[in-house]
Amino acid sequence: MAGEISVEQLADEMYGVVAENAGMKKMKAGDLTKAMIAKFGDQVSKQDCKSAIKLLIDSGRCVYGYYGGSSIELPRTEGAAN
């Protein structure tokens, strides 16, 4: 049932996915949501995932990026700024 996995745990899992794909694939909010539903099934809901993304961004562990589409990324100084 949805809600069995805490939002904090989901955020940690999502952070792991973003870190694992850093430099290889831009992870969108939808990608992270689908990855969590694939992993935890009906133990999580889309709303849980939304809350986890919010936590991830508001804590500063991840930031939004935009390269043609919006993605969730690890904070870094972008190349264009150099």
Binding site: I57, V63, Y64, Y66, Y67, S70, R76, T77, A80
Partner: peptide, 20 residues
Amino acid sequence: WKHGGLVGVLGYGGGVIGRY
């Protein structure tokens, strides 16, 4: 001009468009 993709304000994913 170069397009920036990461600049913004904390918590928001929109509203700022990076240019360098």
